[in-house]
Design a protein around this nucleic acid. Sequence first.
DNA 1: AAGGCGTTTTCATTGCGTGAAACCGGATGG
DNA 2: CCATCCGGTTTCACGCAATGAAAACGCCTT
Lengths: 261, 261
Amino acid sequence: MSRNSNRYHVRAVDRALDLLDTFSTSEPEFTLTELASRLGLSASTTYRLLVTLESRGYVERGNQSGGYSLGVTCLDLGNVFLSQLDLRERALPVMEALREECKETVHLGILDGNRMEVIYLEKLEGLLPVVMRGSRVGGRVPAHCTALGKCMLAYLPEAALHDFYTHVGLRSYTPHTITDLNELLRELKETSRKGLAIDDIEHELSVRCVAAPVWNHKKAVVGAISVSGPANRMSKKRCHELGPLIRDTVLEVSRRMGYPG
Amino acid sequence: MSRNSNRYHVRAVDRALDLLDTFSTSEPEFTLTELASRLGLSASTTYRLLVTLESRGYVERGNQSGGYSLGVTCLDLGNVFLSQLDLRERALPVMEALREECKETVHLGILDGNRMEVIYLEKLEGLLPVVMRGSRVGGRVPAHCTALGKCMLAYLPEAALHDFYTHVGLRSYTPHTITDLNELLRELKETSRKGLAIDDIEHELSVRCVAAPVWNHKKAVVGAISVSGPANRMSKKRCHELGPLIRDTVLEVSRRMGYPG
DNA sequence: AAGGCGTTTTCATTGCGTGAAACCGGATGG
DNA sequence: CCATCCGGTTTCACGCAATGAAAACGCCTT
């Protein structure tokens, strides 16, 4: 936690954000004392941070167990963030056409280059039975084993990938996950050549995806769009057949972002 | 802004949150100087708040125009909040059955009693053409003109409603919006008797909804579930026909929340 | 009644957050 | 080409706001 204490950081604010970051899906609730000891703060300091955050709805109490947990206000910032992204609005109609064409789930994502994770910005559920739960707008998935992620990684400088992944390693999610960095780099080279990435059951069992990157006016990758479906419908053959359709989609979105092509 | 300066508030944290709250859908971007003058702070203080928030991804720069806007990290807190709510997980399978039955869009919402607004926690898109865009998980809509909102307002003490709405008024969104408080109170009384609320084109033109509240083990209203559709498919007659189905749904969800019924 | 646990309040200390003002660097324009 | 402006960054000295220690409180269990 906390790569804070830059020269200009405001300590109290850093602490408040550290406090909020302490909550996670696996540990959604704490007592004041637990928080204090985790953060290495005195009870009174923690108390005052909690009062401040609670009065604004960032934390709540009273879920029978009496502990503190995150509050509804946490949703608001994310909403403003989403509504402000023009990538989202420009991509949406084109994504809807794509879904109409292929009937499968369509995702829009961006890359968080600090953590090498994909963040979903939009999701259009497939029109066929067996839908993709598990993904959600605002949610994160690792980049190295997803189609969205790989097609954005492919345009990063190789040194950055090397630095990051030699440090943290390539976590495995299925038997198909690529866990060797050289193999990943080889595949990414191929990906950038083709402008298409495929996730062949590398992240979730029995899910395959195809994705391609979206470009902006400065010819920088600003996001990616994917089609995902259950492996039985989405054979490797089907993935390749969908290539041109996805390429058309991202080209249209890229144009709307000012891409000169 | 800012009902801060309670006895125990941490000023720097309040200011940082005020800063984040400044961003909105209609004004998503500011320069440092703009923020400073809005918040009534010096440039250096604002600068240090921004450095702190930026290093953690809560604000970003560099969207060509060079101003500050909200950053991706804003999505994370909302996600943890959502994944921690057991109302959501318990309701989801029951909501899916409801959608299968009626084919229209199904929403789950809670009430923010401070602002009398509904917050969507889950959305299952309808299976028929003409989908409901406009709503999004985490989004807010006013309570007095939506089915979700009205069926939760109906169980609030009348004094609270009176206090709130005489203060802020009943904003009108369509010709059907109820703008007279006494009329609203009359309808809410009827609503609580029936345990069902209908939005008859009161919030969005040509959308009708039916909703019913979810109860917990303490017999308190903890949320509501609705069915929404375009007015041509969702006639007033159809709304009433859907009543029993929705009642069954919320009863099942309430049971899963520990409701003794 | 006593003890334990988590929260709230008090209080004195000082280091941190603060505003003022100087400085920088790019854009504008005369 | 210099002057000006406008954002952003840095410096600095001041004093209060944030802090930790400790005590008080409330509630539950023993």
